[in-house]
């Protein structure tokens, strides 16, 4: 009965943490063709605070911590959604792609909050915004800004320092991915604008200047 079982795992990863995870069950196992996905309602902040309080009072500290993390996750997702709502409907003629809107949080302080919004012309032109708090990215950008890295006038200069709405930033260009503008804000946040199929640096800067950085900074609680 099991003699024909084959391993159809080619192309999939066997690491459970990998997005392409494939457990290796193959052969005659049925494929999933229906199902409603996961419910994406953010955690109920008030309920989780109540749970945290009752667990704390009964000395269930790790349960209290779990509930508290869920409450923080709920608050961070709300903040992310508020920021998404505050972003403009269009940027230099490109319309927002609501389906691409994304807010992700780890529920651990700001260490994992990420907000994404894309604007497109429905063809091949795209302006993407990513608002993130990620120490790894931030240190790389700050190294460019404060590490005494110079700018060359000849050769293949593919990045330089600029200012966006008064904030020090880095603009980069790559033939395959287009323009990228990285703006560190406050103590630990970073805004990245990506422009695909933008004709010039000037066009990219015009689009980048549409976004109200001060408003995002205030909503993130950054100084």
């Amino acid at each position: 009965m099991f003699g024909n079982k084959k391993n159809n795992n080619q192309g999939g990863s066997q690491n459970p943490n990998d997005p392409n995870f494939n457990s290796g069950r193959g052969g005659n196992n049925p494929s999933n063709t229906s199902g409603g996905g996961l419910v994406t309602t953010p955690p109920d902040v008030k309920q989780n605070l109540d749970d945290a309080e009752s667990s704390y009072k009964s000395s269930g500290y790790n349960e209290a911590r779990y509930s508290l993390q869920q409450a923080m996750l709920g608050v961070e997702l709300e903040i992310g959604n508020q920021i998404l709502k505050s972003l403009p409907e269009t940027v230099t003629g490109l319309k927002k792609d609501t389906e691409a809107d994304q807010v992700a949080s780890m529920g651990w302080g700001w260490s994992g909050l990420m907000i994404q919004r894309d604007y497109t012309d429905g063809k091949d032109k795209m302006f993407g915004i990513t608002i993130a708090n990620n120490a790894v990215w931030l240190s790389a950008v700050n190294m460019y800004l404060s590490g005494g890295y110079g700018q060359t006038t000849g050769g293949d200069q593919n990045w330089k320092q600029i200012k966006v709405k008064g904030y020090r930033a880095i603009i980069e260009y790559d033939d395959s991915s287009g323009y990228k503008v990285s703006v560190p804000i406050g103590q630990s946040s970073l805004i990245v604008y990506e422009g695909v199929n933008f004709a010039s640096e000037q066009e990219m800067m015009t689009a980048s200047n549409v976004i109200d950085i001060d408003s995002i900074k205030t909503k993130l609680g950054e100084q």
Binding site: K46, R65, Q69, A71, M72, Q82, G221
Partner: peptide, 25 residues
């Protein structure tokens, strides 16, 4: 703070609570 819509202050207070819990643990 959460009830009055002040999400950043709510988050900050929760961070303090996490610290308190870690101390207790």
């Amino acid at each position: 703070a959460y009830n009055s819509g002040n999400l950043n202050d709510a988050r900050f207070a929760m961070e303090q609570m996490l610290r308190d819990l870690d101390m207790a643990i």
